[in-house]
Design a protein around this nucleic acid. Structure first.
Lengths: 226, 226
DNA sequence: ACAAAACTGTCATTTAAGTGTCATAGTCGA
DNA sequence: TCGACTATGACACTTAAATGACAGTTTTGT
């Protein structure tokens, strides 16, 4: 499962360079030069990270950043800002607007790639192959295995994706709608009640009968893990 | 609940500067000059983030970083590396070793603080100032949890919304009419007396029996919190 | 390619939790 | 003290979630 990346850059040469490098790293890359289009694409695909040039057509990068943060679908997507300016004031403004990192031109693709890896490691550890842990539950995304207090737990594909989704956001309450789009995909026309059923199956799988339930039901809001 | 920070820095002047700044920002700071000690402190306190100088006594910063990542207690704690060298090669090595971010000396405290905020926003949303607090009452809208002096309080959906409404406007007197439209919605045709009942239920939930009542009744005006 | 096994989504039903209203008792302030 | 306002307990009613069954799909092993 490759990480999806949205690159918003209007210099064609630089854009091509970035696309080339990130595709070579195994990312699934989408690119646009236009700010408005970037917002649409981001809302539609919810990429795993966004690279955003400060100065782009139509809207300023910082405005795009602000709007990405405001939209609920994209409010948690990490953003790396790209800029020609090196002034500290701008760097701080970028970070305060909600960018996660900031790279100053000229930069080497290797550095940008390293920063991207660092950011993804933090926001989507599973994509970086890191084992996710919540209390005595462990999920190894590479081996595709789950253990509860050391004991292996067999899960079906949907259960696994659902659990991974929860474990990437421990403690957070996720609504049925969020779970449907996050686990089944944006375009899925799944009944929301189906989430209940999968949660029940996941519970049955990961909880020892009579033991502590790691999934919390939050009435009229959704579910959360841990 | 302030975020706990471990600063590993052996230049006394710089260390003092950092401690001062981060404490002023409200962080709970521990500092050490020694790499081995840093590992012990980290394992013992599991801070919410670590600032780590590249060149420190005993072990190199990069080795400390590697070991922090290997230990299960600290493998998920975000690390910001601090370095005098500006060479790209080192920056990349730092990031690849598992640092989450990288700041080159000389840097301004403001920038470091902004980066720290960006990192915490992602790893610990609750610590990035998103939780609402009034006296010893805390409400975390993301996790959908409420605690009174550290002790979790179970609330029903309406009670939760009502409390959130109060906590977003601490100290302010809200009329029953305002509460109805704010909590139940503009188009709701709820009896105003119903507010009394929900306030009673909320009180019963958040106040220890016999303890201090955080909700004040303002006769012929409404209610206020705190 | 085929059959068995595993997995999914949906629905009807059961169970649980939460909510609004009202009648009544209690409280506060002029 | 009186009258207006608020607190409280009971209760019927809604709403939400858990569950069990089942038919249709997909996957797997042979």
């Amino acid at each position: 499962m490759a990480a999806r990346l949205l690159i918003v850059e209007d210099d064609p040469a630089l854009a091509e360079l970035l696309v080339w490098h990130f595709e070579a790293e195994g990312y699934d890359v989408t690119q646009t030069a236009d700010g408005e289009e970037a917002l649409l694409l981001a809302a539609e695909q919810t990429p795993d990270a966004i690279i955003l040039d400060w100065m782009i057509e139509n809207i300023s990068g910082i405005e795009v950043c602000r709007r990405l943060r405001r939209a609920s679908e994209t409010s948690n997507v990490p953003i790396i800002m790209l800029t020609a300016r090196g002034e500290e004031e701008d760097r701080i403004r970028g970070l305060e607007t909600g960018a996660d990192d900031y790279v100053t031109k000229p930069f080497s693709p290797r550095e940008l790639i390293a920063r991207m890896a660092a950011i993804l490691r933090r926001s989507r550890p599973a994509l970086a192959g890191k084992t996710l842990k919540v209390e005595d539950l462990e999920l190894d995304p590479i081996a595709h295995r789950v253990r509860r207090s050391g004991q292996e737990v067999p899960l079906g594909p949907t259960e696994f994706r659902l659990l991974q989704h929860f474990m990437e956001r421990p403690g957070r309450v996720l609504s049925r709608g969020q779970l449907v789009t996050g686990v089944w995909g944006h375009d899925s026309d799944i009944e929301e009640r189906t989430v209940d059923v999968q949660v029940k199956r996941l519970r049955a799988a990961i909880n020892a009968p009579g033991g502590k339930d790691l999934i919390r039901t939050v009435r009229s809001a959704g579910y959360s893990l841990g």
